[in-house]
Design a protein around this nucleic acid. Structure first.
Length: 403
DNA sequence: ATGTCC
């Protein structure tokens, strides 16, 4: 058995795959609060990248029956990773990778480019965006009939855009020197608006009893209520938007590479496309339950997933082992060991340059919060979840575009 | 994380 059990008072058990990695006390406290909710199904599962999060603990799997907690998914609905393997190898890449990074930065609107055209929205979306939006539109119309204020969001102009923070696009090499494209993003402005709205609705609906909850982020909708049904519909749509957002970006990154690299190549456009911030109905222990994964990835037996390391460290393509005790899940990354503010205080631009020596990426003061030392040791994290996933490919980054 | 406001 490679998990430890944290037993909360009057709560369900918390099974933690954290062998050899630290678990902060404030994260343990947050997990124990969640485990007290009466509708938690069987137990909670905790991944080795666990840390304190806003709304719920990052790296946790929260199975519920009869209720749903919108703040557990949070506002970055459908956030996740996509990876595609190309027929290129390292020797097909130019000696200087700056032009590749620059081509990607031009092809995909993103948040942090100095002097960038806007705050990461399209000024003129192309035909791929139109086609992808057409698939999302019927679902969006059904939602905005009930929640018309969501029409005011940047839904269409954000489709195929990266965002900010730790959202990124990378080129990586695997153990055979094959070139992979990896990207990390979510449902952008519209998913954020949906998340925030339903978090507020849940708190308003429960205002008579909210003081009885361990904290107000545990406000929930009960199955059968109108808001429960509306949230399940809206969060599912935002997750679909996030998945398609990543697909549009992948198409445009491939097109950008084809402009810079003269050798013809193919890419498996949907190799892996996985959420790590989401909720969906699943069957576990013979029962239909809602599974909320906050900073956790589905790892059903044989299912492929993506576990990125920090910039300059390794990333992994993994295959699920279908560990039912973990509700068939694995970690979503290395996990932070310090906040963005702490990282900016502790490290310098020189530290950042040294830590990302082998990666073509920005190395200025504005990206120090993503320095590898702000994250846990990815090898320790992988070891702690050895009975959840097996490693299929080990990738190292050579180009990174930060959002 | 995002959008908006300070």
């Amino acid at each position: 058995m490679t998990y430890q059990v944290l037993q909360s008072e009057k709560g369900k058990a918390i099974k933690m795959w954290t062998d050899g990695v630290p678990v902060e006390l404030d994260a343990q406290k947050q997990l124990m609060d969640t485990a007290k909710m009466p509708f938690i199904f069987k137990h909670m599962a905790v991944m080795p990248d666990v840390h304190l999060g806003k709304g719920s603990t990052i790296g946790s799997v929260i199975p519920t029956k009869g209720a749903i907690i919108p703040a557990a998914v949070g506002v970055d609905i459908g956030c996740g990773m996509m990876a595609a393997c190309t027929t290129l190898t390292a020797s097909d890449l130019p000696d200087h990778l700056y032009q590749i990074r620059s081509a990607i930065e031009t092809a995909v609107p993103h948040g942090r480019t100095p002097g960038g055209r806007d705050k990461g929205a399209w000024s003129d979306p192309g035909s791929e965006v139109d086609a992808m939006w057409a698939a999302l539109l019927p679902g969006f119309k059904a939602i905005t009939q009930k929640y018309p204020h969501l029409e005011k969001t940047n839904h269409y102009k954000h489709l195929g855009t990266l965002g900010t923070g730790n959202h990124f696009i990378e080129l990586c090499l695997d153990e055979q020197n094959r070139v992979w494209i990896m990207l990390h993003s979510g449902s952008r402005g519209v998913g954020n608006a949906i998340g925030n709205h339903f978090i507020e609705l849940a708190q308003a609906d429960m205002r008579q009893h909210i003081a009885n909850l361990p904290n107000r982020d545990l406000a929930y909708f009960e199955e059968g209520s109108q808001h429960y049904n509306d949230y399940v519909e809206a969060v599912g749509w935002a997750q679909d938007y996030a998945r398609r957002n990543r697909m549009v970006m992948m198409q445009n990154v491939i097109a950008a590479l084809k402009q810079v690299i003269k050798k013809p190549f193919d890419a498996t456009v949907e190799a892996v496309n996985c959420h790590h911030n989401y909720v969906q109905k699943e069957t576990h222990f013979g029962q239909e339950v809602l599974v909320t994964r906050k900073g956790a990835v589905s790892a059903q037996k044989g299912q492929l997933g993506i576990i990125p390391g920090s910039m300059g460290a390794k990333s992994f393509i993994v295959r699920g082992l279908g560990n039912e005790e973990a509700f068939c899940s694995c970690s979503h990354g290395a996990g932070r060991v310090m906040s963005r503010t702490q990282a900016k205080k502790k490290f310098t631009v020189e530290d950042q340059i040294a830590a990302t020596k082998h990666v073509e990426c920005r190395k200025d003061a504005d990206v120090i919060d993503e320095i590898p030392m702000a994250y846990k040791d990815i090898d320790a994290v992988m070891h702690a979840q050895r009975d959840l996933v097996e490693i299929v490919h080990t990738l190292r980054q050579v180009v990174c575009v930060k959002g």
